[in-house]
């Protein structure tokens, strides 16, 4: 177990190193100069040179890289010159928004996908199956920005059930907080549920065709026991992996939904960094997202290990 986590951690560090090299190299090679970009085309060469020195851009690239890397290992992601703040601080301010969105939409999508996907598999080739799979296909093919706007117009402006934009922190009460992220979470969930539902349906079908299901039926077990205790248990491994990937993707920023609903999340920060050419902010964000994805996939692998006793016991035996 500990050997496994050690192995995974050292692997994660390798990945982080490679990503850091690529990010740094790409931003070094792109034409233009960070200082020039900040000051604009009309700036005098003297001013640009002064800023370059201030930002440390006049040093050799390997020293710049080394300094940046040293910072990374102390969780210092650099400083945004646009905001004049630490990247870590900027992320800290925005992470709760993105995390809330990702968590709620993941819960919504998972519950829906597990219930509908299992039903579609159990009642294969019936109306339930056709309706749930085609509805989900529709959900994943409608673009999120359009669906978001539709929801704002209908549920926000027409029915006035939900606020049309903005984020309320849970400090101001749980009710207003949930109210403010409900619509964007639903929109995000609709986009994600299709793929998850397919995965659940496929692995459930596989599970239902196994011999142990024959045995469960021969024992005369109630349908609920058969499906929940026997079928779903072995059908959950693939969906959990997909959930992990989807969650990691969302935590890395849900640019479109955050923009449509005017939510101050990580996705919007990435957008700003790209639009305003804030290279340090962008570098920092890329590294942060990479770390997060690695961490989440590690957690997912550990979760799968706990569900599957075979992997768990073989790990302990090591």
């Amino acid at each position: 177990m500990f050997g496994y986590i050690y192995k995974r951690t050292s692997h994660a560090i390798e990945v982080l190193l490679i990503v850091s090299i690529i990010t740094f190299a790409v931003l070094q090679w792109i034409p233009g100069d960070a200082a020039q970009l900040i000051l604009g085309a009309e700036a005098t060469p003297e001013k640009v040179a002064a800023l370059r020195t201030a930002m440390g851009l006049d040093r050799p690239w390997y020293i710049q890289y080394w300094d940046w890397l040293k910072g990374l290992f102390q969780l210092d992601l650099g400083r945004s010159y646009l905001f004049g703040q630490e990247v870590v601080t900027l992320i800290q301010q925005r992470l709760p928004v993105t995390m809330s969105l990702a968590a709620f939409s993941m819960i919504l999508a998972s519950v829906t996908a597990i219930i509908l996907g299992s039903m579609a598999a159990i009642k294969k080739n019936t109306t339930v199956d056709y309706i749930s799979t085609s509805l989900m296909q529709l959900g994943s093919s409608v673009p999120a920005f359009w669906l978001g706007m539709l929801f704002i117009v209908y549920f926000g402006l027409e029915l006035k059930w939900f606020p049309v934009a903005g984020y309320v922190s849970p400090d101001h009460g749980l009710g207003p907080y949930l109210h403010s992220i409900a619509l964007p979470s639903i929109v995000l969930a609709i986009g994600e549920v299709g793929m998850l539902l397919r995965t659940v349906r496929t692995s459930m079908l596989d599970s239902l065709s196994q011999d142990f299901m024959d045995m469960a039926k021969a024992k005369g077990l109630a349908s609920s026991t058969m499906y929940l205790k026997y079928a779903l248990r072995s059908a959950m491994i693939a969906p959990i992996n997909v959930m992990g990937l989807q969650f990691a993707k969302m935590v890395g920023g849900t640019v479109v939904v955050e923009s449509v609903f005017g939510l101050p999340g990580v996705g919007r920060l990435v957008l700003v960094a790209v639009e305003q050419r804030d290279i340090f902010l962008f570098q920092g964000l890329v590294m942060f997202i990479t770390m997060l994805v690695i961490l989440i996939s590690l957690l997912v692998d550990i979760a799968v290990m706990f569900i599957n006793p075979r992997i768990r016991i073989e790990m302990q035996g090591e």
Binding site: F212, D214, M215, A218, K229, N308
Partner: peptide
Amino acid sequence: KALVGSKVGYVPQNTGSYLHPMIK
């Protein structure tokens, strides 16, 4: 289903797959 479950014992082929691998 109830009749088979309560009164008929089933000994399957020994392929190892009639017992659920993830349940004790």
